[in-house]
Amino acid sequence: MLQVRGLCKSFGRPAVDHLDLSIAEGEIYALLGPNGAGKTTTLRMVCGLLAPDAGSIAIAGVDALAHPAQAKQVTAWLADEPLLYDRLTPLEYLEFVAGLWQVPAATARPLAEALLTELGLWPHRGEHCEGFSRGMRQKTALAGALLHDPKLLVMDEPLSGLDAAASRQVKDLLRARVKTGRTVVLTTHVLEVAERLADRIGIIVTGRMVAQGSFEELRRGAGPGQETLEDVFLHVTAGPLA
C-alpha cells in the first residue's frame, strides 16, 4: 500500500535520511522514535504536505510525487493537533471535507451520521466546535479523515489527549478499518499502544530506520532481557544516540 524509497529531507541538518518503508495492505504500522527523529516529517512528506529533497513515495501503486492529486484521493491525514473550524458544527465540517474529496452527497450524509454516531459525537452535531474538548476535536477530525473511506490513513499521535474511553473507541475503529483492508500508519510516544495495536513497528533515529518488524521480531532482534517494547525501544535508540 505504501512504498517509500530513499526518502531524504533536510532542514539545515538531515531530518529524514534515506528512509525506506514498505507497508502492506490491511496493516497497522507504528512509526516510533525519540523527539525530533523525523517521524512527523516523514508522514507529512507521504501526505504531500512537504516536498522531499530526494526519494520516491508510492501510495496504492500511484507515484505520489508525480501524481499528488491521485495519491491524495486515497489518503487521509490526521495531524496531532487537528485544526477544526471553530464556528462550524461537526456535521458542517464533515460536509466541507466531503466537498474537498468530492464524496457524493448520497454517500457522504449517511456516512457522516454513522461516523459521528460511532464516535459518540451525534448529540453534539449542532454545536460549534469551539466549545469542544481536545478529545472531541480529535474525534471530529478523525471522522473527517475517514469520510472518504481512505485506503491509507496517516495519523500523527492520534491518541494523545484522549481519555481511556475515547482512546478505546478510536482503537476499535482503526482495527475495524484494517479488517476491511485499509492501512493505518501512525506515530505515537505511548509504546504500549504501539505494542498492542500495531502489526509492525518501525523505529527511526535521526531520520534513519534502525529497527523494523513485528513486536516479536523486534524483541528477538534486541536480544535477551528486552521484554517490553519500552525495553526494546530504549535498547535500539541508545546506540545511535550514543
Binding site: L49, K72, L83, Y85
Partner: peptide, 13 residues
C-alpha cells in the same frame, strides 16, 4: 497556516 494542511492533503487542485 490555519486550514492549509487540510486543504493541501485533499486532492483538490
Amino acid at each position: 497556516r490555519g486550514d492549509l494542511d487540510l486543504l493541501m492533503s485533499s486532492p483538490l487542485p
